[in-house]
Simulated scan of single mutants.
Amino acid sequence: MFSPLRRPALTRSVLKRAIQQNHRSTICSKPPKEKIGPMQSVFALCVFAVTLLAPAGWIMHHIPNYRQRSPPQP
């Protein structure tokens, strides 16, 4: 009936139990050595936003120039 090459299907509970047994927790019990203030957080968010939005803004600003160019010759 059962083929030796075919494994029986794992149920969700068996799979969940297997994952939980192999999971190692990485929870720290100590408070952080240095606290990050609001200025560092704001600075980091601003740098992140500029990094993402600057290239998109550059492209959108130059769309008229891109439209006026002739297509490249093969």
Rank of each mutant, 00 (worst) to 15 (best):
G57I: 11
G57P: 01
S70N: 05
R6D: 09
T11S: 15
I27C: 02
I63G: 00
Y66M: 13
Q40Y: 04
L10A: 08
L10F: 08
Q20D: 13
F43C: 11
A49E: 03
C28L: 12
A56K: 10
L5R: 08
T51H: 15
R12T: 13
P8R: 12
I19A: 07
Q73V: 15
K33E: 09
Q68M: 09
P31A: 07
M39R: 07
P32R: 12
S70L: 05
M39Q: 10
P4F: 07
Y66V: 01
H62K: 09
R12A: 13
I59D: 03
I19D: 01
M1W: 02
I59F: 15
P32D: 09
P71H: 08
K33Q: 11
F48T: 13
L52G: 14
G37C: 14
N65P: 00
Y66R: 08
W58Y: 15
S41G: 06
V47A: 15
M60V: 10
V50L: 13
H61N: 06
M60D: 02
V50T: 05
P4C: 03
R67Y: 08
A49M: 05
G37V: 12
A54F: 09
Q68I: 00
T26D: 01
P38V: 07
L53E: 03
G57Y: 04
I19F: 02
H62D: 07
N22V: 06
M60Y: 10
A54H: 00
T51L: 15
S13A: 12
I27E: 03
A54C: 04
K35A: 12
T51I: 15
A18D: 03
Y66W: 13
I27Q: 07
H62S: 07
S13L: 03
F43K: 12
L5Y: 07
F43W: 13
